[in-house]
């Protein structure tokens, strides 16, 4: 063991000149912003009050946790991430199953099903806000009117639902793509064996296909969570976190603190909270993914 460490140490020593540029860049890239965020989170630093800049200890955190808006933001983040995850996985699985079946025009259908993923988030949000969900000239309002249903002003009565719809629309293609490729790797003779064993379509889905999708689902959950925690453009272009704080997520709270209130210290404290939350979620996800990968 000691010998091994020695050899390892010598190797590290020898490789260091070659390794160092990458390690230094990575360090600057990730550690410096983190360190500066931590540093600012302990300071009074308001851009509207440029002369005063001093150490306040944990007061920024104290203010953050005593503000009911912070808890709302955490709750909103969790609601958004969890809802979009559930919707994109369910709809994504259904779409993947559909697109895996043989039918004429399958190639074009696959392309269209994937295409929302290529639309930039602000553009997608604006299309939904102005062309689809708008109560006066939106497509959805018109269609609901055809059936005699009341028109809903989505962004004022159910802003979070509207946001979840938009973000889900953006992320369903990702889930579909990953799950479709996973379905294609399913050995067709397993399905045939199940057919001969008397498993109907639902039993085949329950006992053969869904277990096969366990691993890709874990990957989708992990990837989407990372990206969904930092959803920003969709909120800015549709609701700007409102009405009130109904759609203010933790990410958006940082933005409000930093660029609307010019309170760098408070924004940094909220940023640290976001980092902690992301790490808790990340740790939990890594564990569950690792477990499903080891199976």
């Amino acid at each position: 063991m000691a010998g091994g460490t020695k050899v390892g140490g010598r190797r590290e020593g020898r490789g260091w000149p070659l390794l160092s540029p990458a390690v230094i860049v990575l360090g600057i890239w990730s550690v410096v912003p983190l360190a500066m965020t931590l540093w600012y989170s302990t300071r009074y630093y308001n851009l509207l009050d440029p002369g005063r800049h001093f150490f306040v200890g944990l007061r920024n955190y104290d203010l953050l946790f005593s503000d009911p808006g912070s808890l709302t933001a955490i709750a909103n983040s969790i609601i958004l991430v969890a809802s979009v995850l559930v919707i994109s996985l369910i709809v994504g699985t259904a779409l993947a199953l559909l697109l895996n079946a043989e039918f004429p025009g399958r190639g074009a259908a696959r392309l269209f099903a994937i295409s929302p993923f290529f639309v930039m988030p602000p553009v997608a949000a604006l299309i939904w806000k102005n062309l689809l969900l708008n109560p006066l000239n939106g497509l959805l309002g018109w269609m609901m009117g055809l059936f005699g249903l009341p028109v809903i002003p989505w962004f004022s009565t159910a802003p979070m639902v509207a946001l979840i719809i938009i973000v889900s629309w953006e992320w369903i293609p990702f889930a579909t793509l990953i799950l479709l490729t996973a379905l294609q790797s399913l050995d067709s003779s397993q399905i045939e064996a199940a057919r001969m064993d008397g498993a109907g379509p639902l039993a085949r889905l329950r006992y053969i296909i869904l277990p096969h999708l366990g691993r890709p689902v874990a990957i989708v959950v992990m990837m989407e969570t990372i990206f969904l925690l930092s959803i920003f453009a969709e909120i800015l272009t549709t609701t700007s976190g409102g009405p009130g704080d109904a759609t203010t997520t933790l990410t958006f709270l940082v933005y409000i603190r930093a660029l609307l209130d010019f309170n760098v210290g408070g924004a940094s404290a909220a940023g640290v909270l976001a980092i902690v939350l992301a790490n808790i979620v990340g740790l939990f996800l890594m564990r569950s993914v690792a477990r499903s990968l080891n199976r």
Binding site: Q190, E192, M196
Partner: peptide
């Protein structure tokens, strides 16, 4: 009952 070339066992 059929025995497949790839065995087609249910892996999970």
């Amino acid at each position: 009952a059929m025995v497949f070339q790839s065995y087609a066992l249910y892996p999970h």
